[in-house]
């Protein structure tokens, strides 16, 4: 992709200032979340002080995507947690103008030679470390939930919400997504929405940073089961910390087809680890509400991916695959939580 490499180099020159020799090579598109086009590349710089090579990631807005999100929010989440107990790559540049690379984008550090695919946690050599990965995963989520959004500089960057309004804002948002994007009626999820509205959860214990898609598949891990980075903050927002916990233990992420949530640990242990790390409590009734909500949110994502593909806005097969694999599984997860799976 020589043309893209030259354009990235032009941009890097613009950001880093004159007097620096800049070259970009090794541009390669990779899978990295379905809402943005992701490329890896090498940035070579040369000055009187010497030469430097960095491996970087470019996340660019596509014409259509699985989730319509604000890149500035994703970038601010990386910036908020970089250098903390929540491992993330170093964010470098956010660009809102389209003229550099046709669409807005941001650039961050690449943490190379690691695995992210969720199904790989069940394959050698990673499968020997599922417990270790699970302990880290839920402890890190606890750190995210524990973090003070104000201290992390996220007030203003993310829309604020009150402790008693978080549930309604999220439910209304995802109900609206389903209203707009469903290709066919969704009787199970509509029943779930009615139940959720009729039985609102207690106010949030606190307003936390919510990653928004905290699940196996959205972190980088090595062959020894060490987690090196939490990725894909594209749905990050402020809200009830139970939202993230519930999303991560959703049935549709039980890759091993057993009781291990995210293919790593039994649900009760995951919840306990999160409670210990966050200092918060997962009230069973409140968590149940958020678990059922996570089915509504999941269905919102899957019907949107189906719509994008069907309408031709984005015909990456991953969108069709997500819809084919998850819509019915999500319905079954909702039925199970409502005590109606027979």
């Amino acid at each position: 992709m020589p043309e893209l490499a030259d354009r990235i180099a032009d941009y890097a020159r613009h950001r880093m200032g004159d007097g620096l020799e800049v070259r970009v090579d090794g541009v390669e598109r990779i899978h990295g979340g379905a809402s943005r086009e992701t490329f890896r590349f090498r940035l070579h710089t040369k000055s009187d002080a010497g030469s430097l090579e960095r491996r970087l990631i470019l996340r660019r807005d596509p014409p259509g995507s699985l989730i319509e999100t604000d890149r500035a929010i994703e970038f601010s989440a990386y910036r908020a947690f970089y250098g903390t107990a929540v491992p993330v790559p170093e964010p470098l540049w956010l660009e809102e103008e389209s003229h550099w690379l046709d669409h807005p984008f941001f650039v961050m550090e690449e943490i190379p030679d690691l695995e992210a695919r969720p199904q790989m946690v069940l394959a050698p050599p990673y499968d020997a470390h599922t417990e270790k990965m699970g302990i880290q995963k839920w402890t890190i989520l606890g750190e995210i939930s524990k973090a003070d959004p104000e201290e992390r500089g996220l007030i203003g960057a993310m829309e604020s919400v009150g402790v008693d309004a978080a549930w309604d804002r999220e439910l209304s948002h995802w109900e609206g997504v389903i209203d707009e994007d469903e290709l066919a009626p969704q009787p199970i999820i509509r029943a779930a929405i009615r139940w959720l509205r009729a039985h609102p959860p207690p106010p949030a214990q606190k307003i936390s940073v919510v990653h928004g898609d905290f699940r196996t598949g959205n972190f980088l891990y090595d062959t020894e089961g060490r987690i090196h980075a939490i990725l894909d903050w594209e749905m990050a927002h402020l809200g009830d910390p139970l939202e993230d916990l519930a999303w991560g233990i959703n049935r549709v992420w039980c890759w091993a087809r057993d009781d291990r949530v995210g293919g790593l640990l039994p649900k009760a242990r995951a919840v306990r680890l999160w409670e210990e790390s966050s200092g918060l409590r997962a009230d069973p009734d409140a968590l149940h509400w958020w678990e059922l909500f996570s089915c509504v949110k999941g269905q919102g994502i899957w019907v949107s991916s189906a719509r994008e593909f069907q309408d031709g806005k984005n015909q990456d097969p991953i969108l069709a695959l997500a819809a084919w694999m998850q819509i019915n599984a999500q319905d079954r997860a909702a039925l199970e939580l409502m005590g109606q799976l027979r």
């Binding site: 199970i188 049935r251 087809r257 694999m325 998850q326 599984a329 319905d331 039925l335 799976l341 027979r342």
Partner: peptide
Amino acid sequence: EIWRELSASTERRKLSLGAF
């Protein structure tokens, strides 16, 4: 009866490669 049918409908739609 509606719940029974909704549950049955997900059984009919199950894919062997699906997680649940």
